[in-house]
Amino acid sequence: HHHHHGSGALAALHAEGPLAGLPVTRSDARVLIFNEWEERKKSDPWLRLDMSDKAIFRRYPHLR
Rank of each mutant, 00 (worst) to 15 (best):
L19S: 05
S43R: 12
E16C: 09
N35R: 15
R48F: 09
R58K: 13
M51Q: 07
K41Q: 08
A9W: 11
W46F: 12
A15S: 14
F57R: 03
W37V: 02
S43M: 14
F57I: 12
P23N: 01
A20W: 07
I56T: 03
L19R: 03
A29Q: 00
A15L: 13
L63Y: 00
K41R: 13
E39N: 08
V31T: 08
D53G: 05
H3N: 07
L32G: 02
G17F: 04
S27P: 05
A29S: 01
R48K: 12
W37H: 06
G21H: 05
W37M: 02
M51P: 02
A55C: 05
G6T: 14
H4D: 06
K54F: 10
L13D: 03
D50E: 08
L10E: 09
P61Y: 02
L47F: 11
K42Y: 05
D50P: 01
I56L: 06
E16I: 12
S52V: 02
F34E: 04
G21W: 01
S52K: 06
G8K: 06
H2F: 15
H5P: 15
A55G: 06
L22N: 04
R26A: 14
R30Q: 05
P45N: 07
L49V: 07
A20V: 12
L63A: 00
S52M: 01
A20P: 02
H1W: 07
R26P: 12
S7W: 13
K41F: 09
I33A: 03
G21Y: 04
G17L: 02
N35P: 00
R64K: 13
A55Y: 08
R58D: 15
A20E: 09
H2I: 13
R40L: 12
E36W: 07
R40V: 03
M51E: 03
L49M: 05
D53E: 10
K41C: 07
E36S: 06
L49A: 02
V31N: 07
I56Q: 00
K42M: 08
L13Q: 05
R59N: 06
L47S: 11
A15N: 13
E38F: 14
A20G: 06
R64P: 05
R59M: 05
R64L: 14
R26D: 07
A15C: 08
V24T: 02
G6V: 15
L19V: 05
P18V: 09
S7G: 14
L47K: 07
D50I: 05
I56A: 01
T25K: 06
E36V: 04
P61G: 03
L13A: 05
R48L: 14
I56F: 01
W37P: 01
P61I: 02
E39C: 07
A11T: 03
K41Y: 10
E38R: 15
A55E: 14
H3C: 10
W37D: 00
G6R: 04
R64A: 14
E36F: 07
K42L: 10
L47E: 09
H4S: 11
S27M: 14
L32R: 02
R30D: 03
L32W: 04
S27A: 08
P18Y: 07
E38Q: 11
S7N: 13
H14M: 02
L47R: 09
R58V: 14
G6I: 15
M51N: 05
L32A: 03
A20K: 15
R26Q: 07
R30K: 12
R40A: 14
P18C: 06
F57H: 05
S7Q: 10
A11R: 02
L47C: 08
R64C: 08
D50F: 03
F57Y: 12
L63N: 00
V31P: 00
W37S: 02
S7T: 15
N35I: 13
A55Q: 09
D28I: 02
A29R: 00
H1Y: 04
L63R: 00
D53K: 08
H1K: 10
T25V: 02
R30N: 07
D53F: 15
L19W: 11
A11G: 06
N35V: 12
G8Q: 13
L13S: 05
G6N: 13
L10H: 15
Y60V: 00
N35D: 05
A20S: 09
P18S: 09
T25H: 05
S43W: 11
W46L: 14
V31S: 08
H14N: 04
E36H: 06
A15P: 11
E38P: 01
A11E: 08
R58C: 07
L19E: 04
H14F: 10
D50M: 02
A11K: 04
R40D: 08
W37G: 01
D28Y: 03
H62F: 03
G21S: 04
D44F: 09
P61Q: 03
P23L: 00
A9M: 14
P23H: 00
H4W: 15
R64G: 12
H4K: 10
L13N: 04
H14K: 03
L49E: 01
E39T: 09
K54D: 15
F57K: 04
E36R: 04
R30E: 05
D53T: 08
E36Y: 04
D53M: 11
K42N: 06
H4A: 14
L10I: 15
M51T: 10
H2P: 13
K41P: 01
N35A: 14
L32D: 01
A12N: 15
R26N: 10
F34S: 05
P45C: 06
L13R: 04
E16P: 05
P23E: 00
D50R: 06
R30C: 09
I33Q: 02
R40C: 07
E36D: 08
F57C: 06
S43D: 11
G8M: 10
S7V: 11
G8C: 09
A12V: 13
E38G: 05
L32K: 04
E39A: 08
V24F: 04
V31A: 08
D44Q: 12
H1P: 08
H62S: 02
K42Q: 12
F57D: 11
A9H: 13
F57W: 05
A11Q: 02
R30P: 00
P45H: 09
I56Y: 01
A29D: 00
V24H: 04
R40E: 10
G21V: 04
S7D: 11
L19I: 03
R64Y: 14
S7A: 09
D44V: 07
R26K: 15
G8W: 07
A11C: 07
D28K: 01
L49D: 01
F34V: 07
L10N: 13
H14E: 03
L22P: 01
V31M: 14
A11L: 06
F34L: 11
H5W: 15
A9P: 11
S7M: 14
K54I: 10
D28A: 04
H3Q: 10
H62W: 02
F34A: 07
K42E: 10
R58F: 12
